[in-house]
Write a protein that binds this DNA or RNA. Structure first.
Lengths: 231, 231
DNA sequence: GTAAACTTAGACACTATTGTCTAAGTCGTC
DNA sequence: GACGACTTAGACAATAGTGTCTAAGTTTAC
C-alpha cells in the first residue's frame, strides 16, 4: 500500500497523482480481500476500509463490484506475466554446472512467479471463479500456464541443441519441470502458506535432480549400479 | 420441542430410510452448490431446490449453514479417502512390464481420486476455504496428500527392494510421481474441466516414462548415446 | 484566491440471505 | 384408520450487502 502509493506519487505529474494513488490503493486492497474472501464473500465496505478510502470513491472509479473485480484480475495478471517473462529471461543459456543453474532458475521461478502474492491470488481466483468468468481468465490460460510451458520448452530446446539435455518433446519436458518444481511445495501453497527460502531451494534441488536423471545429456553420475537391493 | 429430532433419531430404527435418503440428497446437492459457488456464494435455498427438499428440512437436519458445510466436507473427505486407499491397494506388487503397470496405476489414481467430482470439490474448497477452516481441513492435510505420499512411498519402497526401481528417498519419489501424473492435467482441472480417458492415459504414460527414466532400476532403453548434440 | 475536480460520511431504497415459526400435508406402521 | 414422525410452503424478523444520492469537505491547477 505504502510503497506503491509513493511510487505512483513520484511517477505522475498533475491531477492524476492523487487519483492514481487511490486507484492503486483500491486495487491492492481489493486483491487482498478478493483473495481472502472470494468474489461473493468480499464486501465493498471491507475493501474500502482496507484501502483507507470511502466506499463512494470505489464506486466512482469502478462502476460496480464486478468491474472492480475484473480490473483487479487484469492488474494482477499483467504483473504476473511481467514477472514471468522477466524470470524466463534469466534461464541459463549455457552452463558448466547445469544442475546448479537449473536449480537456481527453479528457485527464481517459484519465488517470483508461483509462490508470491500474485501467484497465490491467481491460483485461488482461477480455481474459484474461473468457471464463472471464462472470458476473464482465458487470457491467463493462454498467456499464463499455456505460454509458460511453450516458452520454457523453447528454452529447453536451446539447451538441448547445445547438448546439455536430451529430450524429444520440449513442451512436455517444460510441463514436467514445472510440475516437479511444485511437487514439494503443493502442500504448503495449497493452504495459503508461503514457503521459506530453504523450502524453495530444497524443492528446486529435488526437482532438478530428478529432471536431470531423466533428461540429462551427459550422465552426471554413472548411475551407481544397484546400491541396496533385496530384503 | 427443539430436541424432537435428536430424540427421534435416537430411538428410531425403522423410519431411517426416507430420512437417510433426504440426508444423502442434501449432502450431494450441497456439495455441488458449495463447489460451484463457494461457501458464501452458496445459498440454502439453492441447495434446497437442487436437493428437491424444502429449506426447512435442511435446517432440521443441519442446524445452520456452517454445520451443513462441515458435514459435506467430512462426507466428501471420507469418500475421497476410501477411494484413495482402495486405489493404492491396486499398486503393482511385482511386474514384468513396469511401465505399463505403473501407467495403468496412474490412470486409476487420477481417474478415481484426483480428477473425479470429489477430487475437484476438495481442490476447490481446500483452496478457497482452507484458511478459514483450518480445523476442518487439517484431517485432509494429514490423511490426504500427506498420507498419500508416504503410503505411495512405501509402495515404491517395496518395488525398489525387489529391484524394479532404484531410489533413495521413497516419499520424494512418490511426491514426484504424483506431480508428474498431474503435469499434463493441471490446465484442464484448474478450469473445472474433467479430462477424457485418452488425456488421462496420455498424461500417465508421459509421467511414467519420465519417472522411469529417472528411477528405473534396469535401464529400459540403453540411453542411445548423444543423438543430436551441437549447434 | 478561486474554481474545478475529487473525496468523504451518512442516509437511503432495494435486494438477498439466514434462521425461526406455524399450520397443514405426507408417509409408514400398527 | 389412527398415530407419530417427518416434510412442506409460506410468512416472518433480522441482518448484511449493493448501488445511489447529497451536502459538505479537501485537494489541485491556474
Amino acid at each position: 500500500m505504502k510503497n506503491r502509493n509513493e511510487a505512483a506519487r513520484k511517477l505522475t505529474g498533475h491531477t492524476q497523482r492523487g487519483q492514481c494513488a487511490k486507484r492503486l490503493s483500491i486495487l491492492e486492497a481489493a486483491a487482498n480481500v478478493f483473495c481472502r474472501e472470494g468474489f461473493s464473500g468480499a464486501s465493498i465496505d471491507e475493501i474500502a476500509v482496507e484501502a483507507c478510502v470511502s466506499r463512494q470513491t470505489i464506486y466512482n472509479h469502478y462502476r460496480e463490484k464486478e468491474t472492480l473485480f475484473t480490473a483487479v484480475v487484469e492488474d494482477v495478471m499483467d504483473r504476473a506475466n511481467a514477472a514471468l517473462y522477466s524470470t524466463l529471461a534469466t534461464f541459463p543459456d549455457k552452463s558448466d554446472n547445469i544442475e546448479n543453474d537449473l536449480t537456481a532458475f527453479g528457485v527464481r521461478l517459484t519465488k517470483n512467479c508461483l509462490c508470491n502474492q500474485d501467484g497465490k491470488f491467481l491460483r485461488k481466483l482461477v480455481q474459484s471463479e474461473g468457471e464463472r468468468y471464462p472470458h476473464l481468465f482465458e487470457a491467463w490460460r493462454q498467456h499464463g500456464p499455456g505460454k509458460i510451458s511453450s516458452a520454457l520448452g523453447a528454452l529447453f530446446a536451446r539447451l538441448s541443441h547445445k547438448g546439455f539435455l536430451r529430450m524429444d518433446d520440449f513442451d512436455l519436458a517444460a510441463r514436467q519441470f514445472l510440475a516437479l518444481v511444485n511437487a514439494d511445495l503443493q502442500m504448503i501453497t495449497l493452504f495459503g502458506g508461503t514457503p521459506t527460502d530453504e523450502q524453495l531451494e530444497s524443492a528446486a534441488r529435488n526437482a532438478v535432480h530428478t529432471f536431470l536423471r531423466a533428461y540429462s545429456g551427459t550422465e552426471l553420475k554413472p548411475q551407481a549400479p544397484a546400491l541396496a537391493v533385496v530384503t
